[in-house]
Amino acid sequence: MHLFRFFSLVNTQAKMNLKAEASRFILSYLWWVIEPLLFVLIFYLVFDILLNNGRADFLLFLTCGKIPYLWFSKSVTSASNSIVQNKGLIHQIDMPKALFPYVSVQEALYKQWAVFLVLFSVVMYYGYRPELNWLWLIPVMVVQYGLILACSLLGALCVSFVGDFRMIIAMGMMFLMFTSGIFWDINAIANPVLRDLMLTYNPIAFLIDAYRQVLMERSLYDLKHLAALGGVVLVALFAMHGVLHKASKLIASKVMNS
């Protein structure tokens, strides 16, 4: 399939899916903003009021970590099921199987704009004003988007062959939630070797720290680290496209007989 036509199809299908989803709820597209607002409200109630965490800006700290993590986990989880969920279409037309995870990731990306607006509102509520330094968030978001795509393609491939991978992915997301420094500061790890290991081998931990560096510390993250991560993500994306292309008919056969 021609590249332009592929992305045009991804975009059209993602918009249609969002339209279909919005038509199921009375509050329609408003849920894009209501959902992240409710998340922040729950965090506020639990961590600021009930647990009364000592840190004055804990809600901001938590939101800066949780929102990027939710983008990753929601996208990868839904995209991993996307090939299997499109069994009906796979029964009818021979098409690149990468299309389905791409559509899921694109859907999540459209919703994410509203979620990031909520994040920026919380940052401003804590007295931080938008500044040029915030532009350094763009490379972080681009690399995170690439990472989401690569993980989604891998997840969708695995789930289409062995359904049990759904459970493993769900467990993996929980593991990431507790080890990526969402509720605690990764820089608070006393052992520098262990801290470096966490930041090197857990890209989500590094990305969350990068969001906080820009939004809360008004400083810059490790650019070399981000570039290296971007390179790895690019190689992984190419590799996953190759695998999905090669295994296209086999995937169709597996999905039809599942």
Binding site: S8, L9, M16, K19, E21, S23, H91, Q92, I93
Partner: peptide, 30 residues
């Protein structure tokens, strides 16, 4: 193109939207 009863349509979308998607999936540009 393979037409199979009850497969390939998004039930929440209109016939027009489904036709647009189907036409694009069958190789047409937008």
């Amino acid at each position: 193109a393979l037409l199979t009863l009850g497969l390939g349509f998004r039930p929440d979308l209109s016939g027009r939207d489904n036709a647009l998607l189907s036409a694009m999936l069958q190789g047409a540009t937008k």
